[in-house]
Structures are given as C-alpha cells and as structure tokens.
Design a protein around this nucleic acid. Sequence first.
DNA 1: TCCTTGACGGAGA
DNA 2: ATCTCCGCCAAGG
Length: 116
Amino acid sequence: MPKSASDEAEQRGASTHDPSPQERIWQVVASIPKGAVATYGQVAELAGMPRGARQVGRVLAALPNDSRLPWHRVVNAAGRVSLRGDSGRLQRRLLRDEGVAFRADRIDLQRCRWTP
DNA sequence: TCCTTGACGGAGA
DNA sequence: ATCTCCGCCAAGG
C-alpha cells in the first residue's frame, strides 16, 4: 500500500515532483531529431504552454554554453534564426552541418519542420 | 507596483 | 515578400 500521496503518484507513473515548465521545454527540445527544426511556438505547445513561445526563448537563452541540448533546432515561425550576431551564425552553421538548407537565411519549414 | 525588455506570433496594410 | 502594430508572458529594474 502507498504510504503517502507522492508514493501513490509514483505508482501511477509520475515521478516524485512534476516536471517544471522549464524541464518540459528541455524534454521537448531534446526530442527534436537531427536535421529537423521546430518553432518556439511549437515547442511551447508540445510542452503544454499554448501561448508560451517567449518562455521557450527565455529558457533557451538561459542554457549554459556547454549544454548538450540541440537548442539550435529551434527557430522562429518565419523559419529564420532569431539570434543575432555570432550566436546566430553559430546556429545556422550547426543546422547546415546536419543537413538543414537555407535559402536567403530562411529555412523551408514545410520541408524541415519536425512532426512528432 | 509600474515599466521595459525580449532566442515570439499572427493579423493587416 | 516586408513592415508595423499589438497581444502574450515572465523577469528584472
């Protein structure tokens, strides 16, 4: 028999404490396959935050530089890289390195957008 | 508190 | 296709 509410939650499959919004975003980003991209809004929705595109941007901006998360696979709804300057060039380079094509700094979302 | 600032997005012009 | 304007939602001043 479960001794506490949290133990019972564990029985149902939930872990000790529900994942924070931030953790849910990390999880979604981590699951974007190589060579594909997702938009901020799409990540937000998949993370259970329908209008949280900006939150996704904020969470990604807070990632440490040595993060293993494929943050570069997240682009804006226009299929463009939102980062400015060197960071933006890095993101485009990482994407090109895994086969994502750019046409005038823009990605063809119809072709590269990830569909879970 | 109020105001400003974004790795945003969609509707109009 | 591009540009503005506005709604959205936290975080920081």
